[in-house]
């Protein structure tokens, strides 16, 4: 078993895809780098923190992008974002079987904040173009930096999300919320609370991810292969269903006194999960069996 979380982006590509099949576009040797980091005197990367290209997965042609969490937390800058947009536009043109996004990102890279924000929205629009064309977009989340900010929204625009239990998917990081509203609102050092709020098991039980796997590259590969043909068209009916689900969830805790109680466990109970308080202690396999819908 090889930990997905501990792999670099390129190690993930090497282990997850068919051996030797990854062909990179704009590889590090071409040195397509951020002009803004250099201006700030901050070290740059020859790939701006993301590798994009084509590959084979179980003998099928796929396009793939992998964000490198060790470089600026996987933050999206102008070049990084443009590589993702280019990949998605190319998918729209060349129609691979699927697009895989190995997401690991804190969201917008603050060092180039304005350009990063626009870039993330361009990624979102081009991803939705690919999805609307019936080409499945799969997002894999299991890196140590999680998938946050604008990339947390991008992930939820995709057809299918695979997460490990150590993976995290959310919008604002706990540190940001704590800095804004205090430690009583969100204690970012309470790791158990952070995972109950943003982690893979929680996202599985709420249906925010579509597959929950162990922190194992082979498990991610198997889940991606299983989902390669899962296309979920965003029709008006599908969006009405999504709206109903989110509205029900918004009100799930309305009538419950949550003072000094574990809100995550209360939410899981409200969603029909038995023995919700035990969830953090359970194995991935046991949690997988708990989901009711």
């Amino acid at each position: 078993m090889i930990s997905y979380a501990e792999c670099s982006a390129r190690e993930r590509l090497a282990l997850l895809l068919d051996p030797g099949s990854f062909h990179e576009w704009l590889p590090p040797s071409e040195r397509v780098m951020s002009p803004h980091l250099a201006q700030l005197g901050v070290p740059s990367a020859f790939d701006d923190g993301v590798a994009v290209g084509r590959a084979m997965l179980d003998g099928r042609s796929v396009f793939v992008a992998a964000q490198e969490g060790a470089f600026m937390g996987g933050g999206v800058g102008e070049v990084h974002g443009a590589k993702l947009v280019g990949l998605l536009q190319r998918a729209l043109r060349d129609r691979p079987a699927a697009v895989l996004l190995l997401a690991e990102s804190g969201g917008v890279r603050l060092h180039e904040a304005n350009a990063g924000l626009i870039a993330v929205s361009e990624v979102m629009r081009s991803l939705l173009d690919v999805r609307a064309a019936g080409i499945p977009v799969l997002v894999l989340i299991g890196g140590a930096n999680g998938c946050f900010g604008g990339m947390g929204i991008v992930a939820r625009c995709a057809d299918y999300i695979v997460m490990s239990d150590v993976g995290r998917l959310a919008m604002s990081g706990p540190e940001v919320i704590e800095a804004s509203h205090g430690v009583d609102e969100f204690d970012s050092r309470d790791r158990a609370l952070v995972w109950r709020t943003t982690g893979g098991k929680h996202r599985w039980l709420t249906g925010d991810c579509d597959a929950l796997v162990e922190d194992d590259v082979a498990a991610f590969r198997a889940a991606a292969i299983a989902a390669i043909d899962v296309s979920k068209p965003l029709t008006l009916e599908a969006l009405e269903q999504e709206h109903a689900l989110l509205t029900k969830r918004l009100h799930a805790l309305d009538t419950i006194d949550t003072t000094d109680r574990d809100e995550a466990a209360l939410l899981w109970s409200a969603l029909g999960i038995a023995d919700a308080r035990q969830v953090p202690e359970l194995s991935v396999e046991a949690v997988r069996a708990l989901r009711t819908a």
Binding site: A155, R156, L169, A170, L246
Partner: peptide, 15 residues
């Protein structure tokens, strides 16, 4: 910027 919104999947609602 609230924990409850993160718990409820604010990123999913935004998406």
């Amino acid at each position: 910027l609230r924990r409850r919104d993160e718990l409820l999947g604010i990123n999913r609602a935004m998406a």
